[in-house]
Design a protein around this nucleic acid. Sequence first.
DNA 1: AATGCGGGGGA
DNA 2: TCCCCAGCATT
Length: 366
Amino acid sequence: MKKDQSTDVLVTINIPQFQQDLITWFEKEQRILPWRENTDPYRIWVSEIMLQQTKVDTVIPYFNRFIEKFPTLEDLAYASEQEVLKAWEGLGYYSRVRNLQAAVREVVEKYDAKVPTDVDALASLKGVGPYTKGAIMSIAFSKPEPAVDGNVMRVLSRIADIEEDIAKASTRKIFENVVRQVISQTNPSAFNQGLMELGALICTPKNPSCLLCPVQQHCIAFQKGKQTELPIKSRKLKKKTIHYYTFVIENVSQEVVLEKRPDEGLLAQMWQFPMVEKDKVSEQFIETYLTKKYQISSIELIKMEPIKHVFSHLTWFVDVIYVKVKDEDIQIERNEEVVTIEQFNQYPLPVPHQKVYDQWLSVLAD
DNA sequence: AATGCGGGGGA
DNA sequence: TCCCCAGCATT
């Protein structure tokens, strides 16, 4: 059974009062954040991409370094992919930055390096979805477009007592319709940011601070005492696990082998210590596998600390093996390189392999 | 409509 | 442990 959410909101909320309460609170209480220094569309854009599924505190240092390195849209467009990936190292969801650079290059070519103010042009850019489009339109261009993220769905589900499952893709549109009805036409930027800031600071997932809430008087869930029961969110299935061996293959010159991951999929185009699924190589044949693959004869294998790494959809268990090679030459494949310690900072590594790298360094220090 | 895609922090 | 986080692309 479905309620008519549109009517619900309209008859229940004093919209002008709600807008004023929210905006006044936001203007007064908003956090000082680097991307709030101005409304440069490029900076807003970068911040919005970084903030996807990522907390503000995590983003801040990345944003500052990124903008310092790529101050303008054109700086980013002309940078090398590897340099850009390196600037994103550790932030996760790396396709975000590859899409961002592709989009920025398109803006340089098609729109004279100006972020398009047209909604559809903006939405057509790689990596710019319904949320990011609305965020840029409202924050950078002051246009009254909805920008519905997880915060907004949580806040509005409580304000308007909406019981739709926010885990479902189709639910976002319901909230966009709600926002279209209640958004401030005169200050859509502060309104949208206010909803999100409220979700981050007051209307939190657990233990919301309703007594401090600037829009408490508008909140149906609070009136009903059911604020902790909203939003409704179905949970998802268990993760898969994969077991790997990874090898720190060090030659007599204290260099190691790195391999580049494929162009698509998990951790695309990132670098790692050579890794193989345990299914493919049983423990007793590791030495055979290595000597054959790298065309070497004299090696010593030393077990290091295993690593567990949890992704959003799967878990890696990685056995780390330190391989000291006595041979002069190592035969490597096309996607591999032999790297010195000094060169390491040029290679973007995912976090689990940064941990391997740290282990290797501490061994060398002994 | 469902799934793949990172990583960190809080309860 | 599980959940959550200023989501998007692909199928």
